[in-house]
Amino acid sequence: MATSSYFLLFTLLALASWQTIASDPSPLQDFCVADNSSHVLVNGFVCKDPKDVKAEDFFLAAKLDMPRDTRSNKVGSNVTLINAMRIPGLNTLGISLARIDYAPLGENPPHTHPRATEILTVLEGTLYVGFVTSNPDNKFLSKVLNKGDVFVFPEGLIHFQFNPNPYKPAVAIAALSSQNPGAITIANAVFGSKPAISDDVLAKAFQVDKKTVDWLQAQFWADNQN
């Protein structure tokens, strides 16, 4: 009995430890500014010599107060992501930021961030947002957000934002718990992959005929990430 209890305790501690390291690792120094000239491949970026670090390594004139173009893609949105690729000083700090612009009736289509939880704040307009829990429940949780409202999308879950107003644009700002959260837009990944996924596979997965799959694969799947 005692052996079983010790084994259970060890297992729980191991799982807790795994959860701790499942996201971006904690920094072991004040900063690790990304050295973009290095050809060494690591999980993240190689650190620049601290003696060569400048204030500019932590700065980007992103002009996030300026509206973005939402007319250049079919979904009517524009995501401006500020991550470690754009600000080298973010390397190892486990955070990034995005401004999202929505045209009237525009949306940030269903997608996931494989490495980050997202917390979103509406700056202007109204958004209908939601996410779906994992198998087997696939519970859909949604909310209409107004200016100043905040909503959280858990790490890895499929989520979206939609501007229901046919006349006015909307703007949101999002913080993400990774220096490189990643984004997998579901429609793009499934129907716009290169090379294409077999239509036999997709027809069975979505329970439709292959002509429907072929038509979907022939569409131009716009990327709203900038």
Rank of each mutant, 00 (worst) to 15 (best):
G156F: 04
L12W: 03
N73P: 12
V129N: 02
V46R: 02
K147V: 09
S72W: 13
P50M: 11
D149V: 01
D200N: 14
I184R: 12
G89Q: 09
Y128K: 10
I186K: 07
L176S: 03
I87T: 07
I119A: 07
A222I: 00
S23V: 10
S77I: 00
R68S: 14
K211D: 15
W18E: 15
P104M: 02
D49H: 13
P27V: 04
L120N: 09
V75R: 12
G94N: 10
I186C: 13
A2M: 11
V122Y: 03
T185S: 09
N146C: 03
D52N: 13
D223T: 12
P154F: 01
G94F: 04
L176D: 04
I184S: 13
H113P: 06
T126I: 14
Q225R: 10
V122E: 02
W221N: 03
P195G: 07
N108K: 08
S134T: 12
L123K: 11
M66A: 06
G106T: 07
L9H: 04
N91D: 09
F7M: 14
D57F: 01
R71Y: 07
N78V: 03
L8Y: 09
S38R: 10
A14F: 14
T92G: 04
F151H: 05
D69P: 06
A84R: 10
N188W: 00
D69H: 03
F162E: 04
K147G: 06
A84G: 00
M1D: 14
A84P: 02
K211Q: 15
L41E: 13
S198G: 03
P109V: 04
K147N: 02
L216Q: 09
D214E: 15
F58D: 01
